[in-house]
Amino acid sequence: MKANYGYKDGSGEFFITLDTDRCTACGDCVEACPYGVLEVVDDPVDPLSDVQVAVVTEAERKKIKYTCGPCKPVVDRPPLPCMTACPEDVIAHSW
């Protein structure tokens, strides 16, 4: 499943897409993110299963443009820690 967390507002589109079919819930991204944007929980959109997946925390969903900002400097942008940490290529950022 493609879980898109984030938003679109007047200033642009800011989504973190998690491909949960590939997610093994290893938690490496959770460790890698310096701002606590990600967590591993019971799959919130598949309540009848017991599968765990990575999600963007409820507290951060409405402000990832800002929270993720420091990892996205305007020039010389390094690879994102969350994406680099993920062994299964689950994470994508739209901006």
Partner: peptide, 14 residues
Amino acid sequence: GKVVAFLMNDKCAA
């Protein structure tokens, strides 16, 4: 009725 993909926008009133 199982979710394949989703997005939710609850940040912005537009």
